[in-house]
Amino acid sequence: PLDILFKELDEAIQEQQYKKAIRVCNKVLSQSVNDVEATQCKVLCYMYLGSFQDAVDTINKSGPLKDSFVFEKAYCLYSSAKYTDALKETTSIQSKPNNVLELEAQIYYKLENYEKTIEIYEQLLSQSGYSQSSELITNLCAVYIDAG
């Protein structure tokens, strides 16, 4: 029966019906506590709905999965303008993947720590995958403008 629920969940996500998707996630989780994919989808649905506190609550209640949601939790705190709390999450990560670096740069920008923001963006720009990123270059320009 779980496979039928996951089919339903996938369809709801494809149709961007996130509230419906959360209801399906809850059905899965009632049968399969701490189900990885259902928990991930539930967190993401709340984030896509802009319900960041609900996403954080879901993460905090996710038991053994909690540690796998550090990026998502930091993003939710960032989106709730809790920049110092968000930074505590990202700085707790030892070897930072690029998505964490991107987020950390955004947090530092909001905290008006332009030096740190520039440092991270220059580090990312030195990687081949980012050298053509117009969005990253736009952000770097914004930092230089605000830094004066």
């Binding site: 779980l2 496979d3 996951f6 089919k7 969940l9 996938d10 996500i13 990885v36 994919e37 991930q40 989808c41 993401l44 984030m47 896509y48 990026f71 998502e72 993003y75 960032y78 998505n99 991107e102 987020l103 955004q106 920008y109 969005e135 990253l136 736009t138 952000n139 320009c141 914004a142 403008i145 605000d146």
Partner: peptide, 21 residues
Amino acid sequence: KPMFFDLAFNSCEFPSLENRK
């Protein structure tokens, strides 16, 4: 304020459910 993209949101992706369906 100058334009500033939310690059980190691009990494907020749903997991693949292919193996669960």
